[in-house]
Write a protein that binds this DNA or RNA. Structure first.
Lengths: 157, 157
DNA sequence: ATAATAGTTGACTATTTTGCTGGGTTAAGT
DNA sequence: ACTTAACCCAGCAAAATAGTCAACTATTAT
């Protein structure tokens, strides 16, 4: 589980999509403008997200992208994993000599931690983040943004 | 909170250090050999860890590095933060126009998630990982490595 | 004192990843 | 037909990562 700006872009874009794709598909051009991410970079990210079965592209006028699943069924770990390379990270692979090695002992510790982080991120869904935001919005800002969030939240259900 | 191989190296090295620095300081040369990390790269990482007040260098023969605090008082988030650049990640900084922007709304969501991850990693200490390993070791392997772990665990207290 | 050990520093290089530009092709709506 | 947008791809500049090299300083053992 790697956590870089690339993953952040992906999650940000997916959040934006979740916000706006309730009625009709959202174009990458729109997301690019709102989130100030270059269109071509978004295309790369969404190509991976599509291959991972998280979003669906709709071609032609009025087209764009929409989510394949409910926001509550899309977790953060999957989004990040989708845009990153598989990441072996083992360095010792399945080598036999590694069993009794001190190095691999420490390696196991890291792997364990990595799994913990992954599980943690798997437990957080897009819906969780959106909901959390809704609460924050209503509490802190109370203007049209909040209203919009509530609208979306209703559609989501 | 960024999570890359750099952070992994740092955590791995700190784990190695926690394992071996109970009686006497551990040289970076040893860690480099065990964990197959280049010595000079370790030097860079430990320079940062030292500046962060997590490890202490002991010069002269028999010298090396040792932990400044108990393993239970050293958390993963701090280790990773120590070796990484400060990471602004804002892109909107504290700009005024960002308040009512849709982009910044999504940005806030990410920041919230980032904080969650950070808090999570803050809640995990070196001792936690070592202890977890000890349990695993006893359960699965039951050889000298496990014995060694128990020894260290006693010294730690 | 002196040699050996080991940390400290800085500059320098190679590789990888990142983020982006710009060119296209293909499918769908008008 | 024409537009719109997804889709695809080759390449490229900047940054981060990972590692090297060399000189230097502080400490300790003899």
């Amino acid at each position: 589980m790697r956590l870089t700006t690339k993953g952040r872009y992906a999650v940000t874009a997916m959040l934006d999509l979740a916000f706006h794709s309730q009625i009709k598909p959202v174009t990458l051009t729109d997301i690019a403008a709102r989130q100030t991410i270059s269109l071509s970079y978004l295309e790369q990210l969404f190509a991976r997200l599509r291959r991972a079965g998280m979003v669906k592209g709709v071609r032609g006028p009025g087209g764009g992208y929409k989510l394949c699943r409910k926001t509550s069924d899309i977790n953060i770990a999957d989004i990040i994993a989708a845009v990153n390379e598989p990441l072996d990270s083992t360095k010792c692979g399945g080598e036999a000599n590694c069993q009794k090695d001190q190095a691999c002992l420490t390696h196991d510790l890291w792997m364990g931690l990595s799994e913990q982080i992954k599980d943690y991120l798997k437990s957080i869904s897009l819906a969780d983040l959106l909901e959390k935001n809704q609460v924050q919005e209503v509490a802190i800002r109370q203007h049209h943004d909040a209203q919009q969030t509530i609208e979306i939240y209703r559609h989501q259900d």
